[in-house]
């Protein structure tokens, strides 16, 4: 078994939750942009703006917030199960460790030169670092999100992120890092499509 059942289930739940969080988060961002740009409405999530006008009397903030604060539970539960399982079962240790700086440097150079080979079932140092990194960033995204949601009740947490306004930037950059990861993750999957079936069936080769 290449990917244990728990990993496969939480992988797809995380994927679904993350996509909803990003799409609805972009729409929430648009209501008070931190930077000089907004996300095109069609890229955002939370119902059609025209329908929202009828249901919520505005162009979709209420819907986006409803999605964001519903999907956060899915992400929270799925991520916690994944992390606890990964730590307790030894899955993390087996799959992601060790990450040796020398290998990481070598594989990064190879990847940037387009020479990194990939054997299904084996992870190179770049992959290991990216998977560990994105799990950490997802946790940070959750925590910075909590600190924006509850800057009074969880004010110590908000303080750790530099206060309410700074925490909004932290939350934004966590999102940006996750989007970057997703782009690379999807690109690599497109380049080596044989890695996709095992994340569904768990086996190296899909059953005929």
């Amino acid at each position: 078994m290449l990917h244990p059942l728990v990993v496969r289930i939480t992988h797809w739940l995380n994927a679904m939750a993350i996509i909803i969080m990003i799409g609805s988060g972009w729409r929430i961002y648009n209501w008070d942009p931190l930077f000089d740009f907004s996300f095109p409405v069609w890229m955002t999530f939370g119902g059609w703006p025209e329908v929202s006008q009828r249901w919520h009397n505005e162009e979709g903030l209420a819907g986006a917030l409803q999605w964001h604060f519903a999907a956060m539970w899915l992400l929270f539960v799925s991520l916690v199960i994944y992390i606890v399982y990964g730590l307790v079962s030894g899955h993390f240790r087996g799959a992601f460790l060790p990450i040796r700086p020398r290998e990481l440097l070598r594989d990064t150079q190879a990847a940037l030169a387009g020479r990194l080979t990939h054997n299904v079932g084996e992870r190179n140092a770049v992959q290991k670092a990216m998977y560990v990194g994105v799990v950490i960033v997802m946790v940070l995204a959750l925590l910075s999100g909590l600190s924006i949601w509850k800057p009074v009740q969880l004010q110590e947490l908000t303080g750790l992120f530099g206060g309410y306004e700074t925490a909004r930037y932290v939350h934004f950059f966590c999102m940006a890092a996750i989007v970057l990861f997703l782009a690379i993750h999807l690109l690599l999957t497109a380049l080596v499509p044989s890695v996709l079936p095992p994340m569904i069936t768990g086996r190296l080769r899909a059953r005929p």
Partner: peptide
Amino acid sequence: LLTGCDLTDNEPVQRVLWNMSFWN
């Protein structure tokens, strides 16, 4: 009276979202 037309605007989805909001 309030029917939407896509996945996120349909009634069962709206019901789930409202219930999640009550849970929150």
